[in-house]
Simulated assay, not measured.
Amino acid sequence: MNDPVDLLAGADPLAAFRRAHAAGQQVALRTSGTTTTPRTVLRTTDSWVDSFDHVARLTGLSAASRVWIPGPLTATMNLFAAVHADWVGATRVAGLTEATHAYLTPAALRRLLAEPAVLAGVRVVVAGDRLDPATLASAHAAGAQVSHYYGAAELSFVAWADGETLRLFPGVEAQARDGELWVRSPYLCAGYLEPDQVAMRDADGWVTVGDRGLVRGSTLEVHGRAGGITTAGATVLVADVERVLRPQARGDVVVTGVAHPDLGEVVVAVVTDAADVAPLKALARTALMPPQRPRRWVHRATLPLTRHGKVDRAALTRDVSTEREDA
């Protein structure tokens, strides 16, 4: 097979995708590296093209649509959206006021909610991070139609929702093995370009990226990337703590671990609404095991984001690692 096509190496990644598809070449996509070292994912063009009709049906996207994609094409979700819009003949526009459809991260959607009238009548597709119920409700109140999905650069689409409940994307199988999500579908990547990186794939074609969650029939509950914190000899999974705290919070909650001279690490909860601290502390005392309970609670009105609009956990950990409890 010919060398893979780096879609972002040239001036027109959409044309590069079309050429690669016609030639039967794989394409190379760089991951964002928000929690790990960035990697280059290899996939066939069919692994995207085979999902196009399903996405068009779920979003109502057609050649008459006008699509706004404000994020950089270096983010896989944005690159897919642009390739898909090009494939169906939709027009990409420069602003929300012209758009029938918009592809946003949850953080970008929250910023737009400062002027909610601009969202009225727009079909918004959200991905790249967890969409919390409060933001979803606010977007609906603003008159937007909101869909969101769970996936990854390695997995492509896994589950889709037009409300709060994620349902498996057409053609996708999922299972939870000891709380870790494994996926099998026509949309999976072929592997990584870097020889020292190996996709977690079993002999039956199931792949995992380390996310945790539950599968109940055709519905999926995603708890996030595991992210182990070792404190006083116990391993605490970030996803398990966030799964308990987030549903009861008015703002966002991000859990991280910072170094401690005696315990190795301690669990820290960062909240965007200071009023969440007292009730979440009380919840933690009853709903979490002692090692899981945050030792520190920190308030940050805004969370650091990567250039792709995801929470930058590494930057947040650096930010709070030298802070005293301030919430």
Rank of each mutant, 00 (worst) to 15 (best):
L8R: 05
L8F: 05
L8A: 02
A9I: 00
A11M: 06
P13R: 05
L14W: 08
A15T: 15
R18Q: 09
A22F: 00
Q25W: 01
Q25N: 01
V27Y: 08
A28W: 03
T31K: 00
S32G: 13
G33R: 00
T34N: 02
P38C: 05
T44R: 14
D46V: 03
W48D: 11
V55E: 07
R57T: 14
L58M: 09
T59W: 11
G60I: 09
G60N: 14
L61Q: 09
A63L: 03
A64N: 12
S65Y: 04
R66D: 06
I69F: 15
H84P: 01
H84A: 08
A94R: 11
T97F: 00
Y103I: 13
P106W: 07
P106S: 08
A108T: 12
R111M: 09
L113M: 06
A114D: 11
E115N: 14
A117P: 06
V118C: 12
V124Q: 10
D132R: 14
T135I: 11
A142C: 06
G143V: 01
H148F: 10
Y150K: 06
F157C: 01
V158E: 06
E164G: 14
P170F: 06
G171R: 05
Q175I: 13
D178M: 04
V183H: 02
C189G: 15
Y192R: 02
E194G: 08
P195W: 07
P195A: 09
A199Y: 02
A203F: 05
D204M: 10
D204Q: 14
V207E: 02
G210L: 11
R212N: 08
L214P: 00
H223G: 14
T231D: 08
G233S: 06
P247T: 13
G257Q: 01
H260K: 02
G264W: 03
V266P: 00
V267T: 09
A269L: 11
D273F: 04
D273V: 15
V277I: 15
V277R: 14
K281Q: 15
A282V: 11
T286N: 09
A287H: 03
W297Q: 11
L305N: 04
T306H: 03
R307A: 15
H308W: 04
K310S: 04
A315S: 14
D319A: 10
D319P: 01
S321C: 09
S321Y: 01
A327Y: 07
